[in-house]
Amino acid sequence: MSELTAFILVKTRREWLNLTVAERITAFETEVLPTVRDRVSNVSSRFYDTEFYSARVTDIWVWEAADHESFQLVVEALRETRFWDHYFDIVEILVGVENGYAKHYNTATPTTIKA
């Protein structure tokens, strides 16, 4: 299990939308992935589209990190790419620890998932 999960809420900029789908994939594969992989370990990411539900946030980037320093390095790496404030506006960063309340009080974690 990861130490923390971060939700980076972003809004697409015109510079991103002007790219073809192939150009977007190439940009991600050549600009973001190598930058993050070269500087960070112990992280994983997932991406969610939200533009059909929200005008303020078009995508959510979910990062799971083994520790706070690893996530800090993700942000530092992303800031050095065109994805940060060129292709996307960073709307908000929300960082959370899964079931932090239950862990702090050493109690069972309420869940809707059947065991």
Score class of each variant (00 low, 15 high):
Leu19Asp: 05
Ala55Thr: 14
Arg13Ile: 06
Leu94Glu: 08
Tyr53Ser: 09
Ser54Leu: 09
Ser2Trp: 10
Thr26Tyr: 07
Ser2Thr: 12
Ala115His: 05
Glu31Pro: 04
Asn106Pro: 01
Ala66Lys: 01
Thr112Arg: 12
Tyr105Thr: 03
Glu98Ile: 09
Arg39Trp: 05
Phe47Leu: 05
Glu64Asn: 14
Val97Tyr: 07
Ile93Gly: 05
Arg82Thr: 04
Val62Pro: 06
Glu15Met: 13
His68Met: 13
Val10His: 01
Tyr101Asp: 14
Val95Ser: 10
Thr5Leu: 10
Thr30Trp: 06
Ala6Asn: 01
Phe52Gln: 03
Gly100Met: 13
Ser54Ala: 11
Asn99Ala: 14
Leu33Phe: 09
Thr58Glu: 03
Tyr101Thr: 15
Ser70His: 01
Glu64Gly: 08
Thr5Trp: 02
Tyr87Trp: 13
Glu51Leu: 10
Arg56His: 12
Ile93Thr: 10
Val97His: 10
Ser45Arg: 10
Glu98Tyr: 11
Tyr87Ile: 03
Asn106Lys: 15
Ala65Lys: 00
Asp38Glu: 13
Leu9Met: 06
Thr107Trp: 04
Asp67Thr: 03
Ala108Arg: 00
Ala55Ser: 15
Ser70Tyr: 01
Arg13Gln: 11
Ala102Ile: 08
Trp84Gly: 03
Pro34Lys: 10
Val91Phe: 06
Arg46Tyr: 11
Ala22Met: 08
Glu31Ala: 05
Glu29Tyr: 09
Asp89Lys: 01
Phe52Leu: 00
Val91Ala: 08
Glu80Gln: 15
Glu64Tyr: 12
His86Gln: 12
Leu9Asn: 01
Ala77Leu: 08
Pro110Glu: 14
Val36Trp: 00
Asp89Gln: 11
Val62Phe: 11
Gly96Tyr: 11
Glu29Asn: 10
Arg39Asp: 04
